[in-house]
Design a protein around this nucleic acid. Structure first.
Lengths: 233, 233
DNA sequence: CAGGCAAAACCTGTCATACAGGTTCGGGGG
DNA sequence: CCCCCGAACCTGTATGACAGGTTTTGCCTG
């Protein structure tokens, strides 16, 4: 009946370490104190410090490596990807919900990408779409190029949050992609998917946000339809 | 020069535990084996199992409690919130980028909410907007009601991924909200903000997606303008 | 026989210690 | 001046111990 959240020592240590990062204004790559030092300063055992480090490393807030000191980490979608996968696996999130979110953010992404993409990115995006055309008989390669296509677009949007989210969804997308592929049994349907990607790429390369957004919408319309055909819950 | 990612034992244990969850099809609330049992089955020390547990707990994939066995967790935005805060603090993400994402997903959320909200949710959303009107001289209460308003909308969208994302952004929003408030120094600007919320709530209550979406767009236009006025990087 | 209660068994949280590698850095030798 | 090697330092893992918290067992009572 005692609701006082008596936070354990590990939680305290996590707080102390994040506070340390903030107060010292550490940036990605900067080193943190050694486990021994922290355990002395916080008056806890090295065990506690290690568990705190592991927690922060799981969230990709810091990065660990044997022998080296822990360093502040660059943001990365790995942890988020696992969280989303867990949500999907435990039936707390379904694939259609993810597609609704992806559609929402990817139509925005492609608008921004059409405006802000560098020439190198335009070339890369076009190249990926082209390569998809040659992957007709190799679904795995096709999927990889598809995922890379969307990720490169996200990067071209110049907003790391979009990259983060797209990356977070790639884990589940990788697992469900084959379903969408199988639900496009005809050559026409498969060609359409690739063609749409080429259209998106060309619109982005032409710096035509309107056209790019429309093509992306069409892509998701078609994808969601395919998934519904497959009877995905 | 040896790129073979010889994953440590903790990483292996994390993999084994998540595999266990998937294979046994565990759902939120289900218990996991004890640390001692896992350490025996995986042929590692309890130390390793504990660090693996901490990692999974940090991502809110499992939940720990003293004395009890670890259980599979319900998805929760806590971890994501910390990750985003870290990204902002280390200058990898800026506030405008977050507002762009929020704008993108919240305009979608309000569309869905206007269609799918329950009557209870409509009442709650209207109530929160009304309460904001009474908070003119209490910025903290106003902020809390504002955040609750947006969170309730997300829940009304009936897509847990949107709730997750809105929750993930609330950590930083809480830290930057005062900046936005100070950048609305006139009574007129402050009234406008509250009025816009009321308009959104009314449109959602009236099941008018178009109007709701337009009002939400206006809200973000105004917010972003306020932040730019404040000279936020 | 039913119910309740207390001890036993089990479990997690933290600590101290030990040791096997990996990393860093400075000093000495070429 | 450069390179190499060893000392100092650091992380990864194992083991054993003990303090609480939780669940189960089983006995005792009514």
């Amino acid at each position: 009946m005692d609701n006082i959240a008596s936070t354990g020592r590990v939680e305290d240590a996590i707080g102390a370490i994040t506070r340390h990062i903030r107060e010292k204004d550490l940036m990605p790559g900067d080193k943190l104190p050694s486990e021994a030092l922290l355990s002395k300063e916080l008056n806890v055992s090295r065990t506690v410090v290690r568990e705190a480090f592991r927690s922060l490393a799981a969230m990709r807030i810091i990065e660990l490596a044997t022998g080296k000191r822990a360093i502040v980490a660059r943001i990365d979608h790995g942890a988020m990807s696992l969280m989303i996968e867990h949500g999907v696996h435990t039936d707390q999130i379904n694939i259609q919900q993810i597609y609704d979110v992806r559609r929402t953010i990817e139509t925005r992404i492609v608008t921004l990408a059409a405006i802000r993409r560098s020439d190198a990115e335009a070339t890369e995006i076009l190249g990926l779409a082209e390569r998809m055309r040659g992957d007709a008989d190799n679904p795995t390669a096709l999927m990889d190029h598809d995922l890379a296509f969307h990720m490169t677009l996200a990067q071209a949007s110049r907003n790391p949050v979009y990259s983060l989210l797209i990356g977070a969804f790639q884990g589940v997308t990788r697992q469900t992609w084959p379903i969408g592929w199988k639900s496009r049994p005809t050559q026409a349907a498969r060609d359409l998917m690739v063609t749409t990607h080429v259209e998106i790429a060309q619109a982005v390369a032409a710096s035509d946000p309107q056209k790019a957004t429309a093509a992306m919408s069409q892509h998701f319309d078609e994808s969601v339809r395919a998934l519904l055909t497959a009877g995905l819950s």
